[in-house]
Design a protein around this nucleic acid. Structure first.
Lengths: 145, 145
DNA sequence: TTTCTTGCAAACCTTTTGCATGAAC
DNA sequence: GTTCATGCAAAAGGTTTGCAAGAAA
């Protein structure tokens, strides 16, 4: 597997796009973001570093990073985009508590296996998938009683 | 299982809310929507029927219908809410083609089973879950080559 | 030099909200 | 009568876009 930089460059090349300092900075910073983040978080971090990149460029670059596979879009309870760094082979999903808003990651081979089977049986190429269980965590459930 | 009307009334009662003509109309119309729809679609249909209900009331009522279990929120590729009528026990998920935007429903018992197991093992109550496979359908994949 | 990219600010679009009026209970 | 809901229009808030200036190839 190539380095992130190389993969990003490759995608840009393939699309006839240019490798600009802004895109480099956005990519580099995105890869250092831990956990989930949104466009605004990334833009803030860049601004604090005096890495002058416009909000528009951040918004324009994020989809490219997703396309490259360096980021993944996650979390759909909110109505705006959330991202996380995408470690290949490290697919996971989220349990979201509607009461305390906790987000618990989970990994479960049999979910993955079942989804792979679904994609195969529908002649569908699974580029990415999103799995989210929305409900109540044990703590909140107990507090309600 | 009670009728939709009864279930909705029950929820309103439980929350100290009122059964208004607007809420009734919105519920009735929502249940006749086939496939996926958005708030605006529902509002349009009501307007065409000269069923005067404000957009605000539609937006305020949709979450109540989801809470009642009459509707389900689906589809998260777009950034705004999509709904579908929720037939109990008829949980299903979606394959979404990023090229032709086709949305294919699928049902797969082993996905359901795996998710139930995940919820159980995390002491989590699964109120609803969302499963979406994003990628390329067979037709688009072949056209690309 | 051509084409793509940036940054800015304005536009967009869905959703939410404040407020006065009106209706359910 | 109280409390809640409605409708309107305005605000909100994330995201997109038109455009002129500037940079990559």
């Amino acid at each position: 597997m190539d380095s992130p930089e190389a993969r990003f460059e490759e995608l840009l090349l393939a699309k006839g796009l240019r490798l600009t300092p802004q895109r480099k900075r956005i990519m580099a910073e995105a890869l250092t973001m831990g956990g989930h983040f949104e466009a605004e978080d990334l833009h803030d971090r860049l601004r604090k570093k005096k890495s002058r990149v416009s909000r528009a460029s951040v918004y324009r670059t994020l989809p490219l990073l997703v396309e490259t596979g360096l980021l993944r879009e996650v979390e759909f309870v909110d109505r705006h985009a959330h991202y996380e760094v995408s470690a290949p082979g490290d697919s996971h999903a989220h349990l979201i508590c509607t009461s305390c808003r906790a987000v618990i990651e989970f990994r479960h081979a049999s979910v993955e296996r079942a989804l792979a089977e679904v994609a195969r049986s529908h002649d569908f190429e699974d580029v990415t998938h999103k799995v989210e269980i929305v409900g109540l965590c044990g703590k909140c459930r107990r507090q309600m009683k």
